[in-house]
């Protein structure tokens, strides 16, 4: 039986009919067509589906859609400024070659964003802990960590 939920998606209030058996990921990709959020493993192991709910990074593939009611959800599509200017994290990933195939990138950026919102000057360990649940199969994570470090520095200014 479909139910109606209301929540904030990328700073806009949305009202949508959902099936209780959906995950948040399904709603984002299949209904809102926000396909920047990726499905990797589908069981919370890989981090590709990471979105920010009320300030915390969560795996949207394990998030029951009805729990989104009243929440503030940010996806990769809501990270850049409304005029299209990239977020410092996005720019830093480009500048530091933090992206290779790109599949993990949305999740990486969401995890890093959640960290920087809580801790503007993170240690390398903070960064590595925050993205420990985001698996990248292309790189050795070094450029990704450097990207986050540079974004944090740019955001301080």
């Amino acid at each position: 039986m479909k139910k109606e939920i209301t929540f904030t998606l990328n700073n806009e209030k949305v009202v949508v009919e959902v099936d209780p058996g959906w995950t948040l990921l399904y709603l984002l990709r299949e209904v809102f067509e926000l396909t920047g959020t990726k499905e990797g493993c589908g069981v919370g192991e890989c981090g590709a589906c990471t979105v920010i709910v009320d300030g915390d990074a969560v795996s949207s593939c394990l998030y029951p859609v009805l729990e989104a009611e009243g929440k503030n959800v940010i996806t990769i599509e809501g990270v850049a400024a409304s005029d299209g200017t990239l977020h410092p994290l996005q720019q830093a990933f480009i500048d530091n070659n933090g992206v290779q195939c790109g599949y993990c990138t949305s999740g990486m950026i969401m995890s890093a964003k959640a960290l920087l919102e809580k801790k503007a000057v993170p240690t390398e360990e903070d960064i590595r802990t925050s993205i420990a649940g985001n698996i990248c199969r292309c790189t050795g994570y070094v450029q990704i960590v450097e990207s986050v470090q540079q974004a944090a520095e740019r955001m301080k200014k």
């Binding site: 915390d56 990074a57 969560v58 959640a114 802990t129 985001n134």
Partner: peptide, 9 residues
């Protein structure tokens, strides 16, 4: 336990 994403929920 798990990752940040898991520990948060």
């Amino acid at each position: 336990v798990g990752s940040k994403q898991i520990r948060n929920v």
